[in-house]
């Protein structure tokens, strides 16, 4: 499957800590390259709180947004075929299947991870795939020129965020067949959970957005440990670099993990103004320090990704 996207440049934006500017960077990257004429797919894989559409001036309830429900596997027990042998119950590593002697098995649905082991161990083929809706994906074609947006959303209270991200990746294959993207940019959730790992799995380049605070430092270490494990090609962007003088510890983390700091973006009131208005700052025609800093970061990204500008 990954071969389908082998010709596409894939950038993921992550960082560990929440609120460091991942979505801001991802959206501005996407808008900038779309303006240059590249066909871009932006994937919002922060499935517990997707909101990149807001920065692009779109509501997910708008009529031109295509929504598809995402289901997960849950076992369905056929009382015709089941011999009450208990193998599914014993195989379930989450102990989500109850089966009392002389009774048919039943599922404690919130505990099921959808792993399908029960179906695979059933000797009489008595388990068929049932469905439980756990979230949705939303697709907006041409949210702005040359830019499509794919958003994943996990229903509140659901646990299996990684399944939503898997769905987004599969959906991106499908969309690529139809729209032939040049660049796919993925905005991940904060943290270093398996849904983030999944969202990073495709990337040629992973950008870790952090900030000069002890929290930024701590969470950056966690995400870099994940990246180290999965062998991604990563770089750091230090956002709000003028917020504090807590820069040394970030530089130290970078050198400990042997990862470069691609650039720094200073605090800039114009960025905050644009953010509050829901406009990507890269579209602001004024000249301001954060934009300059961002453009010089983009120049390095272009070189790394061998983009022809």
């Amino acid at each position: 499957m990954t071969q389908i996207l082998s010709e596409v440049k894939k950038i993921s934006v992550t960082g560990g800590k929440g609120g460091t500017g991942k979505t801001l960077i991802a959206v501005n990257l996407a808008v900038y390259y779309a303006q240059l004429g590249y066909k871009i797919l932006l994937i919002d894989a922060d499935v517990e709180n997707p909101n990149s559409n807001i920065l692009l001036g779109k509501s997910l309830t708008d009529t031109d947004v295509k929504r598809a429900q995402i289901d997960m596997f849950v076992p369905q027990f056929s009382t015709d075929k089941c011999t009450k042998c208990g193998k599914c119950r014993d195989a379930c590593y989450r102990h989500a299947i109850l089966q009392f002697s002389d009774h048919f098995p039943s599922l404690m649905e919130p505990m099921c991870s959808g792993c399908t082991i029960c179906q695979r161990v059933c000797p009489t083929d008595a388990i068929s795939p049932g469905k439980r809706s756990i979230g949705s994906n939303y697709f907006i074609n041409n949210i702005s020129d040359n830019l499509d947006l794919l958003v994943g959303e996990l229903n509140p209270g659901e646990a299996m965020s990684v399944l939503i991200v898997e769905n987004l990746i599969e959906k991106s294959y499908e969309l690529h067949k139809e729209y032939s993207y040049d660049i796919i940019i993925t905005d991940t959730a904060p943290g270093a959970h398996c849904d983030v790992e999944k969202a990073l799995s495709l990337a040629d380049l992973t950008l870790c957005v952090t900030e000069p605070t002890p929290f930024g430092e701590h969470d950056l270490k966690r995400i870099l440990r994940l990246i180290q494990l999965s062998g991604q090609n990563a770089e750091i962007i230090l956002n709000r670099s003028t917020l504090t003088d807590y820069k040394e510890p970030i530089l130290k983390v970078a050198s400990d993990f042997n990862i470069k700091i691609l650039g720094e973006i200073p605090i800039d009131n114009i960025v905050i103004e644009d953010y509050a208005k829901g406009t990507p700052f890269i579209l602001d025609s004024r000249e301001f320090p954060a934009k300059q800093a961002f453009l010089s970061i983009l120049a390095i990204v272009e070189k790394k990704m061998k983009l022809e500008i």
Binding site: Y93, H95, M108, P110
Partner: peptide
Amino acid sequence: GGAGPMAVQLIVGSGATVVVGADYGPN
């Protein structure tokens, strides 16, 4: 994980139909 339901399997298997305890989790 899932100790609660597993313990219930054990109790039902033992033939008990009443349990008296304090902290019962949702599962």
